[in-house]
């Protein structure tokens, strides 16, 4: 259960301001939002530590070269911005198991951690296959009226809604 009074801002307002931020990025930095490409760059960085030759010879890491770009810094900034926001309004909370997860799957942090890890693998594999995530397609492509954005965002929600309802429905029968 969320703390009472922990409402945050009106989502329409926070969303519209995010839209303004997208416009400013397009105008000033000439960049569009995206997040999943930088996970590839970071994975490449980590792999380089263990086997530099493997990364150099990889077809994919030659396309998405491991280096720090605007997007890597942007994604890092999300972590800092959310930290600042939550620390200054009292909503920061160290928590290992989300409430809705605990209601359905129990309070074990290990179980939650394992499934978050597995979910993360599946999600990122899908994002890279699709060519991007809700930032790249959902925001970056959609604001440019791209057909790809509409197809992919539709599939994100279709897959997510169907699977979420499958895994949560079982709990109601118990």
């Amino acid at each position: 259960m969320d703390n009472k009074g922990d409402k945050g801002w009106n989502p329409y307002l926070a969303g519209a301001l995010t839209g303004v931020l997208i416009i400013l990025s397009a105008g000033i930095a000439k960049q569009y939002f995206g997040a999943s490409t930088c996970f590839v760059r970071m994975a490449g960085f980590i792999e380089q530590i263990f086997s530099a030759e493997h990364v150099v010879s990889s077809e994919y890491f030659n396309r998405v070269v491991p280096y720090v770009d605007w997007q890597v810094m942007m994604v890092l900034g999300i972590l800092i911005g959310a930290f600042i926001s939550s620390m200054t309004d009292g909503s920061f909370q160290i928590k290992a198991v989300p409430d809705m997860w605990a209601e359905r799957f129990g309070p074990s942090p290990l179980k939650r951690g394992m499934f978050a890890f597995i979910g993360g693998i599946i999600l990122m594999f899908g994002a890279r296959l699709a060519g991007g995530c809700p930032s790249g397609y959902g925001l970056g492509a959609m604001v440019q009226l791209a057909v790809s954005g509409l197809i992919v965002v539709g599939c994100f929600f279709a897959g997510g809604i169907i699977f979420a309802n499958i895994i949560f429905r079982r709990s109601e029968r118990k």
Partner: peptide, 27 residues
């Protein structure tokens, strides 16, 4: 195909790549 696979993973983890960083930021 990628979009639907993403959706399945999303339903398990409950975060997307950008918001996972934000969620970590709020603890």
């Amino acid at each position: 195909i990628g979009g639907l696979i993403f959706g399945i993973g999303w339903a398990i983890i409950g975060y997307c790549p950008g918001t996972a960083l934000g969620a970590l930021g709020e603890g």
